[in-house]
Design a protein around this nucleic acid. Structure first.
Lengths: 341, 341
DNA sequence: ATAGAAAATGACTTCGAATGCAAGGACGAT
DNA sequence: ATCGTCCTTGCATTCGAAGTCATTTTCTAT
């Protein structure tokens, strides 16, 4: 009555040995059966698969990872998921990686400074690679390189270190926006920047500023931090410090553009776009809402995530591959938040 | 010259043996050194930690998981991240779990029907538990139970099966909204539901319908699918089929409420809230934007995620724990999208 | 100084699957 | 019938850390 070994007492936690015993074969055979392209006789395979089904067997990915030195895990590190833009990116990335048989270990940071603690865990889990949409300093990038863990930066480039990255072209995007505004006969420009530690924020603002300068237009720049409230706050700042009547506002992202539009209309009674043209960047969902229809640059998220995943997989397979930067042009979305030429 | 074993040729992939050799101790000592409350002499610990630092050693979580049968991984399964509400939940959950030393394996579904493929992977990775915000049928829930993997359902309850869950109370929320609208002297009600396969959608609509009935008010229900465009579309449907002039609109979530508000104002020239009161549910970011200020029920996301994580950890530690349902009351957010009593 | 308790340490096994290698079996050609 | 080839299969080892147990060292009390 007293069984020495409980065969599959631990329900659904059957091992390859359990399956082997049940099917009357060796553990190796079971392993081969679950490996693509291994040599197993059809009859044996049948037996094994039947046993596996009966015992509810699923290969233990942890054990596989240990022996093959491939965890099939990729870390995705994102600083602020509340950005409206990133959830879409995250969903796309996750689904694309899933389709390639790779699982996502998600790290979402409350503050950018938490990166170091997170990296600790990244090393421990022996991820095959990482996609990062957060600020990494040179030392952190070097740590990836040292360990031979391929990284793809999303919408930012390496600081000093050469790293593979996928970005949406800020320069061409801002140029298109500025050109359109100038053609639309705007003269007094305001710019709402991103937070100081944002790479894309700085890049977009700098691109816009330079183009305006080229075209002989001056501008006032005030700092925002990418959220709705800061669009409002920044507009107030601008109204205070600008002596001439502002007629064009360039925002480093859509969310601030929306905040500024609401603020202009509701707090200042300014008509958008009649009295003030507002443009953003990203092409997030709310930008196309009827109340806003923000003129903006839509990032080609599908193509960008596709590229990021493809580049990462390439580098996982061929560790030596050189760092490549892929720059995607965004699409000018002509809404009704700006009078254009 | 030809070294038989390259000591730490594989940079940053040092094992406990490498550290042991470097420190002149056994592998066991290294292991103990990284385990809380193990017995190691102070001097030995120093030596080992120094060696570990020098070799850039991080314990291999994969190997740990294999031997301890604890992966410290939790699966989070979310159906649509584009919902505006879920990114916040996801970020909260991830950060809370991280703080408890647990990593998140993210599964984001393109379609609800993909759950089965995803579960496959969940079993393979031997996760310690799961938090699910997607529809699971009885069989899928049973699979979790069979394998002894604790699950917490987020904003839904088990279908038949008793499962631990965390929800925001639809009934009290809708009651509060309906009561306020009725007090505000509204008479012709419309309801925009969620998609047919949404648990919370059905629950909210049913609660609102019942309360309206209790208070002697009739209502027209049209189907939406939780996104912005469907708020617009549903409002058009309502305008077409309603004979009397609609004066109150109850939407199953904020996003549709916003869509309906924009549609009313812009397509129909209806003033909100003067001619039509609109209420939503969730309390997402855009609901508080100046242009909308939706009257809604704000879900206590922080408390709910905290509860979900706490319940999950309890059940990981004590597998026998009985299924518990925790229901949180939302907070009535009185915006300006509805005339209230 | 010495017995005895307590602490520290190392040898060895274990977790579950993958794989190199060698042995066994099937099959065709002669 | 015999040999050689190719396909299957099992044995044994491996991945890296944890933990059991036995042994050694250290400390305490007499």
């Amino acid at each position: 009555m007293a069984a020495k070994k409980q065969p599959e007492a631990n329900n659904g936690r059957a091992t390859s040995y359990d399956v082997a015993r049940q099917a009357g074969v060796s553990q190796s055979a079971v392993s081969r059966c679950f490996k693509q392209g291994a040599s197993v006789a059809p009859r044996t395979r049948e037996k094994i698969l039947a046993a596996a089904r009966e015992l509810n067997y699923y290969p233990n990915a942890i054990a596989q990872g240990l022996i093959t030195r491939r965890s099939n895990l990729v870390a995705i590190i994102i600083s602020n998921l509340t950005n409206l833009y990133y959830p879409e990116v995250l969903a796309e990335l996750t689904q694309r990686l899933s389709a390639q048989g790779i699982r996502v270990l998600l790290f979402s940071l409350a503050a950018e400074s938490d990166v170091d603690e997170v990296l600790d865990q990244v090393w421990r889990y022996r991820v095959d690679g990482a996609i990062v949409a957060a600020r990494l300093d040179a030392q952190q990038l070097a740590a990836f390189a040292d360990r031979g863990v391929p990284v793809i930066l999303y919408n930012r480039i390496g600081e000093g270190e050469p790293v593979a990255s996928v970005c949406c072209d800020s320069v061409s995007g801002e140029n298109a926006l500025v050109d359109a505004l100038v053609e639309g006969d705007h003269h007094v420009f305001g710019i709402i920047s991103g937070p100081a530690d944002s790479y894309v924020g700085e890049e977009r603002v700098e691109a816009a500023r330079r183009r305006l300068h080229q075209l002989g237009r001056d501008c006032q720049i005030v700092r925002g931090n990418f959220d709705y409230a800061s669009g409002d706050a920044a507009l107030r700042d601008l109204m205070r410090i600008t002596d001439r009547k502002l007629d064009a506002l360039i925002c480093a992202n859509d969310l601030m553009a929306i905040g500024a539009i609401d603020s202009a209309r509701i707090h200042f009674g300014i008509e958008v776009p009649q009295d003030l043209s507002v443009v953003g960047f990203d092409g997030v969902g709310p930008a196309t809402w009827l109340a806003y229809q923000v003129t903006t640059i839509r990032q080609p998220v599908r193509r960008m995530t596709e590229a990021a995943v493809a580049m990462l997989l390439e580098r996982i397979e061929q560790p030596g591959l050189s760092p490549e930067q892929r720059l995607f042009a965004g699409e000018l979305l002509t809404g009704s938040s700006a009078r254009l030429g």
